[in-house]
């Protein structure tokens, strides 16, 4: 056998293995995407029939009456997620900046462990925490307690992604900033963080998407309500909790509202994600 023969044999084998592996990768990707496609399809299929303006503008009707919507739950979710983000996002970003830019601080390892632990705590436990610090002392379920629970869930997600994104900025970029005669805080905020804003915002979006769908921590903090939001110290309705309540009810029109609510929730997260990508896509360096 000549060298050419050996090589020809090897080449044939290599080509086959190459195609096989490529096929497997494609298959794995498909398996990963399929659930998303099915969920989207099924939720839209079941939810679309109940979608009309009154879904967003009306309160749920008592059993037996037709019509009605989940306007209070849509608004309630916006309030809870908005408030939770307003508290959680700044704290999360600040923690992430600290972990990345002051990693040699004696406090950093403690903060990192705390963030990692917090990320691993089941969300229902964080709900119990909010229950203990806000619901019990104030003698009642409240939107504020729900928002606090969501904020605490958001903090570790945002902190971790912010840290990871900032770590990708090479140190010589920071030195170049210092070398220009800029104070360290300006180098961090205006060059390192500003330059990484698209990555940080992606992390924020993922976190916000996650808390939009949380129901467990809201069950005994924000509880639920059949009325429009009545302030931060009153119970408030939210899509996930309302979906949970209605999906297990025996009434067909309630089940339909749950399906439509699911669709609205999924599409809200999807559209928010796509919008953020579209805005940031052109800005990426």
């Amino acid at each position: 056998m000549t060298f050419q023969d050996v090589y020809a044999k090897l080449d044939a084998r290599r080509t086959i293995v190459n195609r096989l592996m490529l096929g497997l990768l494609g298959l794995a990707s498909l398996v990963a995407i399929l659930p998303l496609v099915f969920v989207l399809y099924y939720v839209v299929h079941r939810g679309i029939q109940g979608l009309n303006l009154s879904f967003f503008t009306q309160l749920p009707k008592p059993v037996g009456e037709t019509g009605g919507g989940l306007g209070n739950a849509v608004l309630g979710t916006l309030v809870l997620v908005g408030l939770g983000s307003a508290v959680g996002v700044p704290i999360g970003i600040a923690s992430g900046v600290f972990l990345s830019e002051f990693k040699r601080s004696r406090f950093a390892p403690w903060l990192r462990s705390a963030v990692e632990l917090l990320a691993g705590v089941p969300s229902i436990i964080l709900g119990i925490f909010a229950y203990a610090v806000l619901v019990v002392p104030l003698h009642g379920f409240s939107a504020a307690a729900g928002a606090l629970a969501l904020a605490i869930i958001l903090i570790p997600t945002v902190a971790k992604t912010t840290e990871e994104v900032l770590k990708l900025v090479p140190d010589h970029i920071r030195e170049a900033g210092l070398g220009l005669g800029l104070p360290r805080w300006k180098v961090i905020l205006r060059i390192v963080v500003y330059g990484s804003r698209s990555g940080i915002l992606t992390g924020v979006m993922l976190g916000v998407a996650r808390i939009s769908g949380e129901s467990a921590p809201l069950l005994f903090t924000a509880l639920n309500s059949q009325y429009w939001p009545r302030g931060l110290l009153a119970p408030i309705s939210s899509l996930p909790v309302q979906i949970y309540t209605y999906a297990i009810s025996p009434f067909d029109d309630w089940t339909q509202l749950a399906w439509t609510g699911s669709m609205v929730l999924v599409l809200f997260v999807l559209v928010a994600n796509l919008l953020m990508r579209a805005i940031l896509g052109g800005k990426k360096a």
Partner: peptide, 18 residues
């Protein structure tokens, strides 16, 4: 001091997204 004594580094390092 660094405003008066500038620096150019080994690797070109323009600031990202500026």
């Amino acid at each position: 001091v660094r405003r008066k004594i500038g620096m150019v580094f080994q690797k070109p390092n323009p600031f990202p997204s500026l």
